[in-house]
Nucleic acid binder design. Structure first.
Length: 109
DNA sequence: CAGGTGACATGAG
DNA sequence: ACTCATGCCACCT
């Protein structure tokens, strides 16, 4: 991943935890989505799903970080830019993600 | 230092 | 399948 990005995030006032979340999010491949829970697990905090949401909310670089690829565990979009996740669904659908009735059609464990 | 908040998860009813 | 109640974590005031 881009190490300079990490530095920028730190400079932006993000903590290590936050940076880890944003980095993990930036690694999500196009056409794929990941749940807040999955992100939490990836960074080594399996129960910090809420904290993950907090991190994405503070995301200073929405262009670099595809925060729209992060959804809830039940397939719902959650919130985006402080509003309903309708925008998220649109973007995801455009990237080839299967959407059903406004809900992301991903394999649930 | 203590209390409140939020882009969440899960189980129970 | 739906709604409510609790639990968890990091951050902010």
């Amino acid at each position: 991943m881009d190490v300079s990005l990490r530095r920028k995030l730190i400079e932006s006032g993000m903590t290590d935890f936050q940076v880890s979340v944003l980095e993990a999010t930036s690694r999500i491949p196009k056409g794929h989505v990941k749940t807040y829970k999955e992100i939490a697990i990836e960074i080594g905090h399996p129960n910090a799903c809420r904290a993950v949401g907090t991190a994405l909310r503070k995301n200073p670089f929405p262009i670099t970080i595809p925060c729209h690829r992060v959804i809830k565990s039940n397939g719902e979009p959650g919130k985006y830019s402080g509003k309903s996740g309708t925008r998220k669904i649109g973007l995801l659908q455009r990237e080839g993600v299967e959407i059903s009735r406004g809900i992301v059609n991903f394999k649930k464990k």
